[in-house]
Each structure stands twice: as structure tokens, then as C-alpha cells.
Simulated assay, not measured.
Amino acid sequence: MTADLTAAVTEVFEEHRPVLDGVAYRMLGRVADAEDVVQEAWLRWSAADHAQVREPRGYLVRITTRLAIDRLRQAQSRRESYVGSWLPEPLVTDLDPAAVTAQQQDGADRVVLSESVSLAMLVVLESLSPLERAVFVLREAFGFPYAEIAETLERSEAAVRQLAGRARRHVAERRPRFEVDPKLRRDLTERFLKAAVEGDVQGLVSVLAPDVRMVSDSADGAKAPRRVILGSGKVSRFLAAVGPQGAQDPAFGFRLLELNGGPAALVTYDGRPDVVFSVDVADGVIQTVYLIRNPGKLAHLDDSGE
């Protein structure tokens, strides 16, 4: 392959990389797995007979989706033996317009893209079969036509429509109806973090729904509740007990950033990621608190430079 051809092949791949990254992450819920899949897609693309490829985007999405389905099938068996709750790996998000397909340029469709990468949605997608998840991601998040999805999955269009219908019904039954007002979510996230750091039980209760759920994901010796904590009283008491410990230690730091399409709180220790808190909001209060303390899921948030 000549230098000019190599550059052209690379340029085409990079043009479509945001969509490939988006599909892979929504399929797998882990940044490292998504990166591995996209890298494998690049290797296959670089070795392809490009003269035979009429639609590079469709070709690349097909490769990426099929690789993600294979990876997801392997991952699901591991997740069945996971100790405690399994949560997706938090993703730093900045919805690049390049990741938005031609069908998704208006504000409403950008909201759909943001919702499709939320922790709440990714948790629901975990309960779909790999094929259902692929159809849902390609159709609902990225707006691919049924005929193109059918070609990607090597299924008939009728079969793909059936898969899409089952996936939509399943998601509709399980998806919480959370608000997406970014200002409200940020305000509640800031108040939540402040109250937790100060050990302010009443401040926590004021921002939590009475039936709030706190779901934790930890591993490799990191301490966090293995079971879901239910109710504002129990959640607030737990957070108020552990929050001030970190606040009094100068090695701990706290900052807000955007993860999975919404504001989240990152707690660091000696500059390294220690805990991520993300919340879902409805009716003006926090309905779900996600606590992620699995070191393997936070490593990519490390900007300490070490």
C-alpha cells in the first residue's frame, strides 16, 4: 500500500471513528472493550479490498457491530459471576457533532444520543440479548434504516423489525423516566456532593427521593456496598458516615465533570480516581445514585500524568 493510499484509508476511518466508538461503547458498556473492538475494526479495514467497498461507513459499522456482539457474548458470561452490582464504565462525554448521523442534527435527536449513553439506559440494555441490543443501538441511537441493520446482522429485515419491537418494549418497561434538564441535574449533583462531604444528613434527605436507590460497583478490594441501598434515610446515613472522612483527608479531591451525558462527581485520592458518583433525577429530586469504585473502570479518568 502506497503512502498516499495509506493516508486516504486512515482518513476515511478517522472520519467515521466517532460513530464506531459510539456504537461499540453503547453495545459493551466498557471503554476499554469498545476501544479494543474499534482497533480490531481498523485492522480489518486496513487489510480490506477498498475498491470493493461502496459505502465505507456502512462497512465499518458492520464490522464494529459484529465484533461487539462477539465481545458482548463473552462478557455476559463473566458478568453473571460478578460479585455485587455491575455498572457500565463511566464515559467522559462531549457529544461531538461528528458522532451524530445525518438523521440526527436537531436538538431532540441530540437528547436521544445523550440518553442512549446514560448509565440508566446502559443498565437496561444489559438485560437485552446481544442481537436485540445491537438493533436497539443502531436504530434508536443512530437512526440506521432497518435494511442496513439487517445486512449488518445478516438477518432478514422482517426479523430485524421483530427484534427492534421486542427491544423497544423491553426498554420501555424497564427504563426509568428521568428528567434530562442539565441545570437541575448539575444543581442537585452539587448539593448532593456538598451534603455528603459535610456529613449533612438533612441536606442529603432534601435532595433524595424517599425511595431513592443507591447502586454500587466495586472490585479488587475497593470498599463499597455490595447490595443496593434503598430509602433516603439509609442512603443519607451511609453517605454522611463516609463523606466527612474523605473531606478531612487532604489527599482527597472533589470535582464535577460530564460523564455519560450528564454531570457527575469524581472523587480523587492523591490525584487518582477513587469514586464516581452519578445521579438520575425526576420530580425535582434524585431517584438513583450510582457509586462506581471499581478501579478498572476508573483508570481511564486518571489525568494525573503518571
Rank of each mutant, 00 (worst) to 15 (best):
Met1Glu: 06
Ala3Asp: 12
Val9Phe: 05
Phe13Val: 07
Glu14Asp: 11
Glu14Val: 02
Leu20Ala: 04
Gly22Pro: 01
Gly22Ala: 01
Ala24Ile: 04
Leu28Tyr: 09
Ala32Glu: 14
Ala32Ile: 14
Ala34Arg: 04
Val38Pro: 02
Glu40Asp: 10
Ala41His: 11
Trp45Asp: 05
Asp49Trp: 08
Arg54Ala: 15
Arg54Leu: 12
Arg54Tyr: 12
Arg54Pro: 11
Glu55Val: 14
Glu55His: 13
Ile63Gly: 04
Gln74His: 13
Gln74Pro: 07
Ala75Met: 15
Gln76Gly: 15
Tyr82Thr: 13
Val100Ser: 15
Thr101His: 06
Thr101Leu: 13
Thr101Met: 11
Val111Gly: 09
Val117Pro: 02
Met121Phe: 04
Leu125Ser: 01
Ser129Ala: 11
Pro130Ile: 14
Glu132Thr: 05
Ala134Trp: 04
Phe136Thr: 06
Leu138His: 03
Phe144Trp: 08
Glu151Lys: 13
Leu153Asn: 10
Gly165Ala: 07
Arg166Ser: 13
Val171Ala: 12
Glu179Phe: 03
Glu190Asn: 03
Lys194Ala: 14
Val197Gln: 11
Glu198Lys: 02
Val205Asn: 10
Leu208His: 13
Pro210Glu: 10
Asp220Leu: 15
Gly221Ser: 04
Pro225Ser: 08
Val228Glu: 02
Val235Tyr: 05
Phe238Met: 01
Phe238Thr: 00
Gln245Ala: 15
Gln245Leu: 15
Pro250Phe: 04
Ala251Trp: 00
Pro263Gln: 04
Val267Met: 09
Thr268Asp: 00
Asp274His: 12
Asn294Arg: 02
Ala299Gly: 08
Asp302Leu: 09
Gly305Met: 10
